[in-house]
């Protein structure tokens, strides 16, 4: 059974723009999916449907076979969404507060909240910074903090929206390693990006969204050659294969 499924998902903005159009997608437990598309293709809008931040005009989203509208809080617990620019979305004044925000929303006892925060910070290696102000962290660490924030809620699926934007080379490597570790730990990963050259080697599946439609879905080796016609830079240079598409050595 798919862990996440969208059925005929359509979203039309109030001004009539069709943001996503009839998207049918099935994600299975443990998958590592790269979702690519040009700017404005609708991939961010699609991601915001996964945990009910946006409501579909038509169609529905199912998690573990259940429509998310049945229990929205449960959906938000299961699907952790890491935003494009975490800097603008921190709600806590210290790293600990920031990570505790999610578990506190679940109304868990304080001792359990503390334990979850500690585990999440250990996984991303931020425990040394637990009392720092989030804004003073480096770009890569900020991204890791945003990941820890959703990790503390112990989600099954982690959706990362353009996690590499604005990061320098060490930052990208840091975050990429983190994502791979999460995948190894058993989380289902959906990685939204248009920079295939940084990550595609690790993905088991490549999905391409173009003008609100799902246009390609399959093995990266098969799909990647058709990427360029949808406004995504062809990542393969002469003599390269998909397995070379990573920024990890």
């Amino acid at each position: 059974m798919p862990i996440l499924e969208t059925q005929n998902l359509t979203h039309v903005f109030p001004d009539g723009t069709v943001a996503i159009d009839n998207i049918n997608l099935k994600i299975y437990p443990g998958e590592f999916v790269v979702m690519a598309g040009a700017n404005g293709s609708g991939k961010t809008v699609l991601a915001r449907h996964f945990n009910g931040l946006l409501k579909p005009t038509k169609g529905q989203v199912l998690i573990d076979g259940q429509p998310i509208t049945k229990n929205i809080l449960e959906a938000r617990k299961k699907v952790g969404l890491v935003f494009q620019d975490p800097d603008r979305q921190f709600v806590g004044q210290t790293v600990t507060e920031e990570v505790a925000f999610g578990p506190e929303n679940l109304n868990l006892p304080p001792a359990q909240v503390e334990a979850m925060v500690k585990t999440a910070l250990e996984v991303v290696g931020l425990n040394r910074f637990s009392q720092q102000n989030p804004y003073v962290l480096s770009g890569g660490l900020k991204r890791k903090l945003a990941i820890a924030g959703v990790l503390a809620m112990q989600p099954k699926i982690i959706v990362l929206d353009e996690p590499f934007t604005g990061l320098d080379y060490p930052g990208v490597v840091q975050v990429l390693q983190q994502i791979l570790r999460l995948h190894e730990m058993g989380h289902t990963i959906i990685l939204i990006t248009h920079e295939l050259e940084k990550t595609l080697a690790h993905a088991g599946r490549l999905v391409i969204i173009n003008q609100g439609k799902l246009v390609e879905d399959g093995q990266p080796e098969a799909v990647v050659y058709r990427a360029e016609q949808y406004g995504i830079r062809m990542p393969l240079r002469k003599g390269e294969e998909v397995k070379d598409l990573t920024w990890l050595k």
Partner: peptide, 8 residues
């Protein structure tokens, strides 16, 4: 009053 700006 229109509400939040659509993400993209």
């Amino acid at each position: 009053q229109q509400g939040p700006v659509p993400p993209f």
